[in-house]
Amino acid sequence: MVLDPGHGGIDPGAVGPNQTFEKDIALKVAKRAQELLKPYSINVYLTRTNDVYVDLHDRAVFSNEKGADLFISLHLNDYPQDSSVYGSEVYYFDFSESAYARRIAYRENLDLNTDKNLIETWVTDKENSLDESEKFANILASYLNVNGVKFRGVHTAEFAVLAYTRSPAVLFEMEFISNPQVVDEFTNGDYVEVFAEIIKNAVIDFFGLK
C-alpha cells in the first residue's frame, strides 16, 4: 500500500497559524502510520519521505509501479473565513466512464482509437476499484467516530491522485489547519499519534488483519 503525504518542497499546502505547513503535518502522520503498520507485514511505501515536491501524477505513477492495493493521500483542509470550523472528510473518485477514458487518454498521451484496448483496461481497473475505495472510506470513517474526531462525511471528487491510481484510493482531509486549536493538537498535542492510529486501524480492518 502507499501513503501519500500531500504537498512538499516548494508547495507548502495550506498554511495555518504560526506558519504551520500542511506538508509537514501530513508527512509526520504518514511516517508514524508507516511505523505503526510494521508489525502487520504490510509493505507501506511513502510517495515522499522528506520535504520534496512530488508532482500529482508522479504520486499516482509511484503507487501503480509499486503494485499498491491501497492508496491514501493525506491532507489538511483550510477555511480561513471561519477558524472555528473543524473535522475530517474522506474522498474517493467520482467516476464517469466516458469522461475518465478521455482523461486517461489525454494524460497518458494515448489515442482513443488506436489505444482503445489499453484505455478500456484503465477504465475497467478504475471502475472495479471504486467499491473498494468506498469501502475503505467508510471503514476510515468508523474509526474517526470511535476516536471522537468530528466526521464531516464521505464524498466523491475528481482529485488527480485519485484519478490516476489504479488501486482503491482515498484522499483523507484529516482536519482544518485554519483552526488554531487543531494546529495546537498537531504540534503540541497527540493528534499525529491519534490520526496515525486511526489510519493503522482502518488499514488492518480493510485487509482483514485484525
Rank of each mutant, 00 (worst) to 15 (best):
117 N>E: 13
162 L>A: 09
151 F>A: 14
75 H>Q: 14
112 L>K: 05
50 N>L: 08
185 E>I: 04
29 V>P: 06
156 T>P: 14
151 F>T: 15
135 K>S: 13
81 Q>N: 08
155 H>K: 03
124 T>W: 04
33 A>K: 07
80 P>T: 07
12 P>S: 11
208 G>S: 13
178 S>A: 01
147 N>C: 08
10 I>E: 11
72 I>A: 08
43 N>H: 04
170 V>P: 15
66 K>R: 11
127 E>T: 12
184 D>A: 07
11 D>F: 02
148 G>I: 09
201 N>A: 06
29 V>D: 02
127 E>I: 12
14 A>L: 01
160 A>F: 05
95 F>T: 14
67 G>L: 03
182 V>A: 08
150 K>E: 13
98 S>G: 12
77 N>W: 15
161 V>T: 15
43 N>E: 06
173 E>H: 10
116 K>D: 11
69 D>A: 08
132 E>L: 07
83 S>E: 07
38 K>Y: 07
115 D>V: 06
80 P>F: 01
180 P>G: 01
131 D>E: 13
133 S>V: 10
156 T>M: 09
109 N>K: 14
96 S>M: 08
121 T>S: 05
76 L>A: 02
41 S>G: 08
117 N>Q: 12
150 K>W: 05
68 A>D: 02
40 Y>P: 07
46 L>C: 11
72 I>D: 13
85 V>H: 03
117 N>W: 11
140 L>V: 12
18 N>F: 13
25 I>T: 06
44 V>P: 05
193 E>G: 08
38 K>C: 10
28 K>Q: 00
135 K>W: 15
178 S>T: 00
2 V>A: 03
75 H>A: 15
34 Q>Y: 02
15 V>P: 00
21 F>N: 02
18 N>M: 08
193 E>Q: 10
102 R>M: 15
205 D>E: 04
140 L>C: 06
